[in-house]
Structures are given as structure tokens and as C-alpha cells.
Design a protein around this nucleic acid. Structure first.
Lengths: 237, 237
DNA sequence: CGCGTTCCTTGTCTAAGGTCAAGCCGGTCC
DNA sequence: GGACCGGCTTGACCTTAGACAAGGAACGCG
């Protein structure tokens, strides 16, 4: 049953898993499921923030569009992940836009419901802080990547995040459009395409929306351990 | 007296200002002030996180060093700002390193003290979420800048943040070393130097650690409204 | 089947910015 | 005074990736 399936997803989610189960159930009961097609907006940057979301199925992106029209994707979430927790409590507006990148089912939770529970149980507040912290951490990692790695290395890191193992070979599915991947990595779709080409030399093959990594450890070395290669290092090799 | 001066700083800080004053006083009483010279570390990436900090005076930077040695500054804080709130509650390690960039005085608050108060007063939890959210928001803005603006535009934005007005001319003080500014903006010191040079054409003059902006509105247009110029736009002009 | 659309790739050109190296200036320490 | 050091700037060179333009593959639709 979808109901049980969803309940499991929610209880295991980053936000709900650290709450007492009864509290989580209570919250879930007072929330509603929404179903969206691909490409629909969930909320817009500047909308008043009064609710947060948990992904039940599908993929969601958070992004900002700058005045120049450049879209910066600051997060992509899938099953079991929550988003928009923090602004919901601040009586402010959403600082980003949220949009589905595939067909989606979401759990929509009103901030007021959580606030009520929070007054009785400090664990709820802790769970919120934990969820927000997870996002904070992810953003810090994203900034580090943007600053310390080349576009191609970021693509390599992205592929590595998709495959769980740390050595051997593996085949991963690119879960959403390459345009989204590119924007999330801070590059253009063209550059992503070229980066995939360059990763061929590191044993990566792209077949439609799948990537075959012949040697995960090798790709890891390319992405991180070596860092941005200095001229001297390249010349020496 | 320094005591009163500090108390005022803390009560007006992002973290404490949204708590009931008595709670804030209580927390303050149980915290201790520490004094640090310039260039000292406050904590290292990977240290167990059990305390958070409020800046009483001076400047602090948070950064990560990638395996390649590149330093990515993810935050610079001054008087009245707090940092490391979230990890302190997560029983994890600090995900970044904190270091003073000038001589500093800090208020050091043990997470356990806050936890105690949080159990009795949900406002404390709210204050924490608010503080973490502020950082989240800042990081999102930083990512947007890294992706959507050129280095020189980011430098312009940085200068604009330092001067409060939105038009006219003004003279601002660069509050810390240019190396730090560069790393915070995701560029090298060399590029920062060249960016300052380029901003001369937008009416900006650099004199040691001061910047004179002849026309704030004009610099704002350069930084944001125009965005990354397209070739066609440049050719047309 | 042809048609369009959407998504992706490829080619060419250009600009932005990193790397390395050298030099400059204002301190401080002897 | 001179040597030294840190912070900053300048210059030459080269890699990276964005802009633009064109083409190709997959898919749906009449």
C-alpha cells in the first residue's frame, strides 16, 4: 500500500527520524500529500513561507535566478529528504524557488502544526535544527567544490556521490536532466557535455542517462585527492 | 565598562536577540569570554563540536581546506554575530575551521547549557533555528554569487555590502586582509588586485585598506542589475 | 510517415581567471 | 643603517569554461 510505503519514507526521513515516533505520526496525520507533474513550481522565491515539505517520491530542485537570468541550483532532493524547514519558522519569505524536476509526490507540513508540537517537546526543535544543519553542511560542501574544483572534477564528484561503493566498477543512473545537473554543478549544459567527454579518459562512459564508471577509486583520485593540478605536477608526470 | 558593552552586544546579537531577555542573561552568565590574538584557531575542522561562539569584538573567518590546499572561506563574522550553533547540537564534529583574522574577544557558550534552557523554553530552540537559518541564507547567496557573477562583480558586491547607503559616494574600510576577502569571494589575491584595478573604471579607488566609491548606484548597476554581460549586449553598446 | 519539440552534443571563438615569477613597499628586528 | 618578512601588485602565460551557432538523436503527434 502506498500509505504504508509513505509512512515508512517519512519516518525514516532526515527530519522525522530523530523525533519521537508518536510525534512524527501526529504530524503526519495533520499533513497532506500533494501530487505534482514534472516542471511544476512548489513555491516561488519571495512567497510567504508557512509550510515545509518532505519528498515522498520524485525529485525536487531549489534554485535562485539572478538578475542576469543565471539559474543557480542550491539543492536537489529526493525521497526521504525535507526542504524549506527553516524559512517556515521565521515568518519570512522563501529565499529560493522550488520546482519539481520529475513527477513528484510530496508531504506538505504546516509550520504552525510543528510549532504547536515544539512547545511540548524539545526533541521537535532538535529535529528541526538537525535538518537545517544538514542543509547548511551540504551548502558548505557545495561552496568548497565550486571554489576548489574544476567543472570536470565537480562532475566526477557528482557521479561518485551517486554510486555508493568506493572502489571497483559501477553503473549509475543520472536521476534527472543534464541541464539540472549542470546548473547544480555551476556549469552550463555544454560544459557538462564536454566534461563527460573528458571523463572518458578516466574510465567513464555515458550512455543516455546512465554512467558507467570502470574504476571508482580512479575517478575519486581524479575528483578529489589530486585536487586542482598544478602546472609543476602535470609537467612532472 | 567592557562588561556592559559586551552585554549589549550579546543581547543585540542575532542569536540572543530573539530569546527572552532573562534567558539570554542566564546563558551569558554561564558562558565565558575568551581573548585571542590574530591568526589563532578557535576550532579545527573535525574537532568535536560542543560549544558555539558570539563575536564580541574583532573578525573571525570560517573556512575549509580542500585536499588540493585551496582554502574556501564560507563565512566571515564580526561583532554581534554567532557561529557554530548547529554542529554544537548534533553531537558531530565541526565541518569547518574557525580562525581569527584580527585580534578578537569571543563569548564561548557550551551547547549543554543551551540544551538545558531549551527544554524549558521553546523560544530558545526558535532562536537557534533563526540563527542557523541566517547562515543558510548567507550561504545560498554566496553560491548564487559564485555561479552568476564574475569575480570583479563579486568584488563590487562585497564593497557595496560594506557601505550602507544605496546611492551617492562613500568611503569604506576593508575590515580585514585582502587575502581573506579574495578567498571569501572565491578568487586569488592576484585576481582581487586586478579586479580593484578594473573597478577603477566604475569609479572605485583603493587606498591601502580603504575603498572610495564615487557612485554607489553605478557600482550597484555594475555588480548586479547588468549581470554577466552577453556578447550581443556588449557589441550593441 | 514527416514534422516539430526537447534534449543533448560539437565546433569555434573569446574572456575570465588561475599559476608562476618578480618586484615593491612598509613594517620590524637586530 | 641593513636585512628580512608579510602583504600586495604587476606581468606573462595558459587553462577553463562561457557564448553563440549549428547539428543530431529520441520522442510524440498528426
Amino acid at each position: 500500500m502506498r500509505r504504508d510505503y509513505d509512512r515508512e519514507t517519512v519516518l525514516a526521513s532526515t527530519l522525522f527520524s530523530t523525533m519521537p515516533p508518536e510525534t512524527a505520526e501526529q504530524l503526519m496525520a495533520r499533513s497532506k500529500e500533494i501530487e505534482l507533474a514534472r516542471g511544476e513550481s512548489i513555491f516561488l522565491q519571495g512567497d510567504p513561507a508557512d509550510r515545509l515539505f518532505v519528498v515522498l517520491d520524485g525529485w525536487v530542485k531549489l534554485f535562485r535566478v539572478s538578475s542576469s537570468g543565471t539559474e543557480a541550483v542550491v539543492g536537489v532532493f529526493s525521497k526521504g529528504e525535507s526542504f524549506a524547514e527553516a524559512p517556515a519558522f521565521q515568518n519570512t519569505n522563501y529565499p529560493v524557488t522550488a520546482e519539481t524536476v520529475t513527477a513528484c509526490r510530496l508531504l506538505q507540513v504546516k509550520a504552525s502544526e510543528i510549532l504547536t508540537l515544539m512547545k511540548d517537546d524539545p526533541h521537535v526543535g532538535m529535529a528541526m535544527i538537525g535538518a537545517v544543519y544538514a542543509h547548511l553542511h551540504a551548502l558548505v560542501a557545495q561552496i568548497e567544490q565550486l571554489v576548489a574544483q574544476t567543472g570536470t572534477q565537480r562532475v566526477a564528484s557528482f557521479l561518485l556521490k551517486l554510486c555508493k561503493q568506493s572502489s571497483g566498477s559501477c553503473r549509475v543512473t543520472l536521476p534527472y536532466d543534464k541541464v539540472i545537473i549542470a546548473r547544480y554543478l555551476g556549469i552550463t549544459p555544454e560544459s557538462l557535455s564536454r566534461a563527460f567527454g573528458r571523463l572518458g579518459r578516466e574510465g567513464v562512459t555515458i550512455e543516455q542517462n546512465h554512467a558507467i564508471i570502470s574504476d571508482v577509486a580512479r575517478l575519486g583520485a581524479f575528483a578529489g585527492t589530486e585536487g586542482k593540478q598544478r602546472r609543476s605536477e602535470r609537467d612532472a608526470g
